[in-house]
């Protein structure tokens, strides 16, 4: 009996270890390829441990880091400014919707919720943003069109609803206005849910490449992920990155294209991959989707 018990635990753990291996091995490949020499990849393909070590790829990446730096700037601005602004606007909107005596509670909730069900889709949005609002090739395209989402507003509202109503009542008897109640009582108490939503937005915006793909032609405004996509799919773009800034000559044959692609992945995504998992607790906390209903 005891032995059988042991085995079944062992099998479950083996299952998870195997699963984790499938998540880690690809990352190891990315690292290994970025440190391989181009010749060794041509000769024997990608390998888990470089057959011939080389730092050439990184040398080329850092020779002309302008594109990567610009992308970092764009991405950091878009994700940090965008996420904080979004969470602020969404919290502002969620608060009245959490108040039972707000007379427009029902219609506004519907106004917001309906956008989850129906939307104009890509083409009308594209025409609106480019022809009427002039957001093409502008940093604000990363911030404005995605400013709020019905889903996140409902999550925040549900959290607000669970705060004890007595808090608001007491503050109002003391003469506090709605604004003060919101800023001095509701917001500080809601840090867990605000952090969760903020973090979800940060990840989504950090990983955004579609916005650049659709709206941006100016290379200095590419997000990191879009720069990476160009690097993977367009050898010319990659070779331009390898150009020496001073002489501006294309070094054609020498560019270690394959390792360089993966070195760029490391430079662009590495720092975040190291940082983000530490915040994972914000995901499970306060975000049980079951609490979303209502």
């Amino acid at each position: 009996m005891r032995k059988k018990f042991f085995n079944y635990r062992l099998i479950i753990n083996l299952f998870f270890i195997l699963m984790c291996v499938t998540f880690i091995v690809p990352m190891l490949y990315v690292i290994s390829i970025s440190f391989s020499s181009n010749a060794s990849i041509d000769a024997s393909g990608y390998s888990l441990i470089p057959t011939e070590w080389s730092l050439d790829a990184y040398r080329y990446v850092f020779r002309n880091p302008e594109q990567v730096l610009n992308s970092y700037k764009t991405t950091i601005f878009a994700s940090v400014v965008g996420s904080f602004l979004s969470v602020f606007v969404m919290a502002l909107m969620a608060y009245p919707l959490s108040r039972p005596n707000f007379v427009f509670k029902k219609p506004i909730t519907f106004f917001v919720f309906f956008t989850m069900l129906f939307g104009g889709g890509l083409i009308p949005s594209y025409i609106l943003n480019t022809q009427y609002l002039g957001l093409a090739n502008s940093i604000w395209i990363y911030i404005l069109p995605g400013l709020a989402s019905a889903w996140h507003i409902i999550i925040i509202r549900t959290f607000f609803q669970q705060l004890p109503p007595a808090l608001v009542e007491a503050a109002k008897i003391d003469g506090a206005r709605e604004m003060r109640v919101f800023f001095t009582i509701i917001l500080p108490l809601s840090k867990p849910v605000l952090a969760s939503v903020l973090f979800m937005m940060l990840t989504a915006k950090w990983n955004d490449w579609q916005t650049s793909l659709i709206y941006i032609r100016d290379e200095t405004l590419y997000t990191l992920q879009y720069t990476l996509q160009k690097v993977l799919n367009e050898v010319e773009f990659l070779k331009n990155l390898a150009k020496s800034g001073e002489f501006n000559v294309t070094i054609n044959a020498d560019v270690p294209t394959e390792p360089m692609r993966f070195a760029l992945v490391i430079v662009a995504a590495g720092p975040m991959l190291v940082v983000f998992p530490f915040f994972q607790k914000y995901f499970s906390k306060g975000l049980t989707v079951g609490a979303v209903k209502g």
Binding site: V89, M90, L92, M93, Y95, P96, L97, F104, I108, F111, V112, T115, F118, G119, G120, G121, P124, S125, L128, L133, L144, P145, L147, A148, I153, E178, M179, F182
Partner: peptide
């Protein structure tokens, strides 16, 4: 308080529907 959100949803969600 809901105003910024209302304006946002009107411009970026309802206008495209039209």
């Amino acid at each position: 308080l809901t105003l910024p959100g209302l304006i946002y949803f009107f411009i970026w969600h309802y206008l495209p529907m039209f």
